[in-house]
């Protein structure tokens, strides 16, 4: 993954955001991380003021998405991304505390690319994020169309 790729981190919990960032950096991920702390802010960033998603055209982007947001469900955001002509190719990594099988299934049905559960056990948490960071090195990310 090249360094130009921005990571849109949709995460309402600042603590979680900090821990995720720390562990990505530890894995050597140098990319820009755009923190988006609620659903509305995230939608505005992703789809632009006109809501079309054109704002990100040509931009290599990767989305980290928490499902439990205060103002809307992450599932709805995922659905809108995958239904949008410009953003549907953008890889979405769901990163959430929920390990409910039905929820995981639903996310993949809607087109999520990776699903990672945040464990309370910090060693596992750090390991999961760092592994994901390493995975990002070898990943090819398309630009939004």
């Amino acid at each position: 993954m090249t360094q130009q790729i921005a990571i849109a981190m949709i995460e309402d919990d600042e603590g979680h955001a900090r821990l995720i960032e720390k562990n990505l950096r530890r894995a050597g991920v140098q990319n820009e991380i755009v923190p988006l702390t609620d659903g509305a802010t995230a939608l505005k960033f992703l789809f632009g003021p006109d809501g079309s998603g054109l704002v990100n055209k040509g931009r290599p982007l990767l989305i980290l998405l928490d499902l439990n947001l205060p103002d809307m469900s992450g599932i709805d955001i995922l659905k809108r991304i995958k239904e949008n002509d410009h953003l549907r190719v953008v890889p979405v990594v769901v990163l959430t505390t929920t390990d409910d099988k039905a929820e995981i299934q639903r996310c993949f049905d809607l087109g999520c690319n990776v699903y990672v559960t945040k464990p309370v056990d910090y060693e596992k948490f750090a390991h999961a994020i760092q592994q994901f960071g390493l995975f990002m090195y070898v990943m090819q990310v398309p630009v939004a169309i």
């Binding site: 919990d13 603590g15 979680h16 821990l19 720390k22 439990n68 505390t97 929920t98 409910d100 945040k118 464990p119 309370v120 056990d121 910090y122 060693e123 948490f125 750090a126």
Partner: peptide, 21 residues
Amino acid sequence: AHIVSHDLRSPLVNIMGFASE
């Protein structure tokens, strides 16, 4: 119970995470 269980878990990730840090 379902919602509470998930929402109660979220702060624990932080407490555990930062205690470990």
